[in-house]
Amino acid sequence: MAWFKRTQKGIQTPTEEKKDVPKGLWYKSPTGKIVDAEQLESNFYVSPEDGYHVRIGSNEYFKILFDDNEFEELDKNMTSKDPLEFTDTKKYTERLKAAQDKTGLKDAVRTAVGKSKGKDLVIACMDFQFIGGSMGSVVGEKIARAAEYSLNNRVPFMMISKSGGARMMEAALSLMQMAKTSVRLAQLADAGIPYISLATDPTTGGTTASFAMLGDINISEPGALIGFAGPRVVKDTTGKDLPKDFQTAEFLKEHGFLDFIVKRSELKNQVNLYLDLIGNQPVRV
């Protein structure tokens, strides 16, 4: 029974000598699958066992879509003002500063031009980690300017949406971005310049009601949540039970809101296949 008796009381190893497991070595998907972080990154941030697409931001999408991750960022230093002097529990300016410090981003969208499979492409990509990817004046202005760059240089435009909707701290100024961006996209359509819209998880609110659903081709990643209002609001408004998997990418494709769903590993090839087809170019493999 001496085996069960301690010969020394207290902690055996001094606290300063204990080593914690570094954070970020493993990722657990919603279905409970455990993935090594390096394996996850090499697999386009998709869980290999269940196909779950982990949320990623502009850094990762640019790396996936631009050749050799080489691009020129547009309007890189544009930041929001606070014309409404909005204050809730914290001043809007303080929220912006905190988000910028935490994420290293200026706002919830980055725009860039580079080559994808050897041909020019302009991409605007939203970052959900910046105040929930909310759409404020800077988001609308940068998307509009990116579309204008596409128009002036006759370069295809791609929008990657990931947003909780309008930014409440900018009130009506935020809602005005829906019209601004829609006008620019209409100009692209009139000029015959391709616009591809990729809806990722989540794409909701004013983004869905404007640029996210105005593509010449609307695509999505598997399992993405896409909708205007949340399911609870829709159910309370209609007074009806909602169908299974309501507002998923698969449900929307089945009902004609999406053209196709593409796995992240196939995204670059599929986008360029579409651009080659409408541009009447030989397909690049």
Rank of each mutant, 00 (worst) to 15 (best):
S47E: 11
S47A: 11
S47Y: 01
P48W: 02
E49I: 07
E49K: 08
G51S: 01
G51I: 03
G51Q: 00
Y52H: 06
I56E: 02
I56L: 04
I56M: 01
G57D: 05
G57C: 04
G57R: 05
G57S: 10
S58L: 03
N59Q: 07
N59P: 05
E60G: 03
Y61I: 11
Y61K: 05
F62H: 02
F62K: 03
F62S: 02
K63C: 04
I64C: 02
L65N: 00
F66K: 00
D67E: 08
D68P: 04
D68V: 06
D68A: 08
N69V: 02
E70M: 06
E70G: 04
E70C: 07
E70R: 06
E70L: 09
F71R: 00
F71P: 00
E72T: 03
E72Q: 04
E72H: 01
E73K: 06
L74T: 08
L74E: 09
L74Y: 05
D75E: 01
K76M: 08
K76F: 10
K76G: 04
K76H: 06
K76P: 05
N77V: 05
N77A: 11
N77C: 03
M78T: 08
M78N: 00
M78K: 08
M78I: 03
S80A: 12
S80L: 04
S80Q: 07
D82A: 07
D82L: 01
D82N: 10
L84I: 08
F86L: 09
F86I: 07
F86E: 10
F86Y: 13
F86R: 11
T87V: 15
D88M: 06
T89R: 15
K90M: 13
K91P: 10
K91E: 14
T93L: 13
T93K: 12
E94V: 14
R95Y: 12
R95C: 12
R95S: 12
L96A: 13
L96R: 12
L96M: 14
K97F: 14
K97N: 15
K97H: 13
K97G: 08
A98C: 04
A98D: 13
A98S: 14
A99Y: 13
A99M: 14
A99G: 13
Q100S: 14
Q100P: 08
D101Y: 12
K102D: 11
T103Y: 01
